[in-house]
């Protein structure tokens, strides 16, 4: 995880994040994005100068807690509906490409 107090992002940081997010970036795209993301971070860093000593951190815009639903079954999709969105299906299951690389 990158250090939120740091206001610049290195090319290596971007390459690492891209690999974690399974985004294939070319060398040229890495150069370009590293610069562009650094600018965005610098802009956002402006908020760190806001006077927030008396403000509680929040993770949700609404001041709500304990929103729950009763433990009651609701209709599921049919397997046909669920699998209609799958690129490929077999035996009523989602078919996905090989998980491990070939030996």
């Amino acid at each position: 995880m990158s250090d939120p107090t740091r206001d610049s992002l290195t090319r290596d940081d971007v390459a690492h994040l891209a690999s974690l997010a399974r985004i294939d970036l070319s060398e040229a795209e890495l150069d370009h994005l590293a610069g562009e993301l650094a600018v965005i971070l610098e802009s956002v860093a402006t908020v760190s100068s806001a006077p927030i000593e008396d403000v509680e951190p929040m993770s949700h815009p609404m001041p709500l807690v304990n929103v729950t639903r009763p433990d009651e079954v609701r209709p599921s999709l049919s397997p046909d509906q669920a699998l209609a969105m799958a690129p490929d299906a077999e035996e009523q299951r989602f078919s996905v490409p090989r998980i491990l690389a070939e030996d």
């Binding site: 077999e90 299951r93 989602f94 090989r98 998980i99 491990l100």
Partner: peptide, 12 residues
């Protein structure tokens, strides 16, 4: 086994 598999099927 996952090793050597050509693809995988998932039940959610």
């Amino acid at each position: 086994r996952i090793h050597g598999a050509t693809h995988s099927l998932v039940d959610y």
